[in-house]
């Protein structure tokens, strides 16, 4: 390396990363320089990242009509953020005597809270791989506002629905282990039921 190449230029490193000059003295000199030069190590890491990007399979653009539809913001109610202090509710084995569920692994919740009373059944996936969660929520004090019911996994809201006082809801969706069901009451309180199998 001559003095002007105290820090070889980007073009030299491009050829180096591409494996050019295998076995030559120049390449050995570059490799030796690289071992002790953090600046050039950054250069080569940057170039290796470029090479890495090439490994990603060719991306395909969606059909124009799909793209146009997706780029229009969906309409619908804005959902509440993740609750900071949800009240966790425990499931119990389903009571099959009432004919609520025949699935042996189903879980149910039937409890009263100061704000609401719940009657909810969670039926685990069979062949379709979908959980089915259904039930009713009764508010202790009449309120015309809706209760938002969310099926959540990490920061994904898998499904959501609204139900009014005493109304029936049903959610059915594919969701991984560790999901939770959130009931956002009009009062602002959130009741949360976690995946009974997790």
């Amino acid at each position: 390396m001559n003095p002007r190449q105290a820090h070889p230029g980007m073009d030299i490193w491009v050829r180096f990363i591409a494996g050019e000059g295998e076995g030559t003295e120049e390449r050995e000199s570059l490799a030796s320089h690289l071992e002790s030069c953090s600046r050039c190590t950054k250069d080569t890491e940057f170039l290796q990242n470029l090479q890495r990007a090439r490994r990603v399979p060719k991306w395909v653009a969606p059909p124009t009509e799909l793209s146009s539809a997706a780029r229009r913001r969906p309409q619908g109610a804005t959902l509440p953020p993740a609750p900071t202090q949800p009240r966790n509710v425990r499931w119990a084995p389903a009571d099959v005597r009432g004919g609520v569920s025949t699935a042996s692994a189903s879980r149910m919740v039937s409890r009263m809270f100061p704000q609401a009373e719940l009657g909810i059944v969670a039926i685990p996936p069979e062949a379709s791989g979908e959980w089915r969660i259904e039930g009713r929520v009764w508010l202790r004090e009449a309120d015309a506002r809706a209760i938002q019911v969310l099926l959540v996994h990490d920061d994904h809201v898998i499904a959501s629905t609204e139900v009014f006082d005493g109304g029936y809801f049903e959610l059915e969706d594919v969701v991984g282990s560790g999901w939770s069901l959130e009931l956002h009451l009009p009062t602002g309180e959130t009741l949360r039921l976690e995946d009974p199998d997790a």
């Binding site: 969606p62 059909p63 969906p74 804005t78 953020p81």
Partner: peptide
């Protein structure tokens, strides 16, 4: 794939208030 494409954006829209990262 088109069906999934549409559903992903609906899920993102639903999840906007809670995506932290």
């Amino acid at each position: 794939a088109g069906d999934v494409f549409q559903q992903v954006w609906l899920e993102l829209h639903r999840s906007l208030p809670r995506i932290r990262n």
